[in-house]
Amino acid sequence: MNNDYLWDRTGEPDAEVQQLEDVLETLRYQPLPFELPAAVKPAHRSWLVPALAIAAAIAFMILAGGIWLRLQQQSRSNRRDLAKVSRESRTTRPAAPDSPVVENVSAPDRDPDGPAAQRNSLPRRNRMVRISNRNQFPRLRNEMSATERVEAEAAKDQLMLALRVVSAKLNLAQRKTQSIPATNNIRNQHKLG
């Protein structure tokens, strides 16, 4: 056995390889003329598909960027609205800040000077000031310090407490009208905060 003969037909011939070559050469390629049809031409490389792919990728990126910017703006405007609400609640806070908030927010039937009434009773000049503040939201938002944020949170908590009180009162009234015995308020105090 000679490996060089198998590799490049040099060296001592390998009898087995020669025998196989002799038998298998009957299947060897027989040259045939190859004629190209006249109508057939080599197709030129098209740049259309890659160009379209690049354009589609750029368009997709622009679209994605637009959506992202839009979402960012929305979240900013939400934060602005929150700041506005907290600021307004501060400006419309009653003169005596030590009085319980429940008194101001709940029981509109007992309090003729409810929030709507308070808003309407504000001097016209004051209302104009609040409207003009709308144009200054970016500045307000930027200027909102940590203490203001804490105040806003406190205002939110007060509002939630007031709503819970109103809800409890409405429940009580409903039960009374339907002759259902009142629930134990002590046991359910956690609902009132």
């Binding site: 390629y29 045939l32 190859f34 080599p42 197709a43």
Partner: peptide, 13 residues
């Protein structure tokens, strides 16, 4: 064999 060469000719670019 013929098919493959024809195909190769068309796609040579």
């Amino acid at each position: 064999v013929q098919d493959i060469f024809l195909h190769a000719f068309k796609k040579l670019a």
